[in-house]
Nucleic acid binder design. Structure first.
Lengths: 141, 141
DNA sequence: GTAGTTGCAAATTCTTTGCCACCGT
DNA sequence: ACGGTGGCAAAGAATTTGCAACTAC
């Protein structure tokens, strides 16, 4: 139910500085790209060049701790962010473009639960990342 | 099957220096722990204190490129290594101890394949990590 | 007004690398 | 012998932090 990030920040009682408004505005339109801090910083400084990258780092961390953003660490080493307002899902990373596709497979989740219970554990969280190439794209194998 | 790492290195024609022998010897006994470079370095310098951490980094990288080691990056940020001589498997990380348990669930793999094919992709590699707590241990929830 | 924020640069953490002496084959 | 290696310390890349000035509430 598409509530704005800004609204969530207000609900959480976060102090909304000019910098945070800009960062949140960028996230509002870019969160589907799973941007990293560098990408966010680039868009943010287009709007307000005086914002420092430290502020971007501090703000995404704040929003993560507030449960508004989710930090992902894919195989490229950097942290990439998405909004936390959707159902749990996993990620398919298109190796030819870097694009991230979200998917959810309840059957896989159920199997995980079962398996982990069999091992005597209870899942706290998990991550499944699939790195893949498009089928129709040329088979560079 | 249980071929020694040292033997694999020789087969690959890697020059076996004193330092590499020590590092390989440590890996031989510690690879089931999925040690990180720091852990390896600690054990290595117990045997030969003159070996530098740069050499450990260079050697694990070399062994990874030779297909002898697999580098994992779990949620703790550092690279952790295991030998590449076993079947593909995924990891369950025991949050209470940090211990890593390997598992293989062909059903999950099959579902992944099917799903990814449906999305028009072909899997190159994937990673599934499950972070969990023991059931009998106290429920810190 | 005051505590929370910011920018800047310096610090951290993990990993890589340039350089020159050294050692395996 | 000679080209691949190792040690050391400096360089990198991503991220965090100390501090003094600033600003939202």
């Amino acid at each position: 139910m598409r509530e704005t990030i800004l609204h969530k920040c207000e609900v959480k009682g976060l102090r909304m500085t000019g910098q945070r408004r800009v960062i949140v505005q960028v996230l509002e339109t870019a969160h589907q790209d799973h941007p990293d801090v560098e990408a966010l910083y680039a868009k943010v400084t287009e709007i307000d060049p005086s914002i420092s990258i430290a502020t971007v780092y501090r703000t995404v961390k704040l929003l993560e701790e507030a449960g508004i953003l989710i930090r992902n660490e894919f195989a490229d080493g950097r942290a990439r962010y998405e909004t936390a307002d959707r159902e749990h899902h996993d990620h398919l990373i298109d190796l030819s473009t870097g694009k991230v596709i979200e998917f959810c497979e309840p059957e896989i989740e159920a199997l995980q639960e079962k398996l982990v219970a069999k091992l005597g554990y209870k899942i706290r969280f998990h991550r499944l990342e699939i790195y893949a190439d498009p089928i129709n794209s040329d088979e560079t194998d």
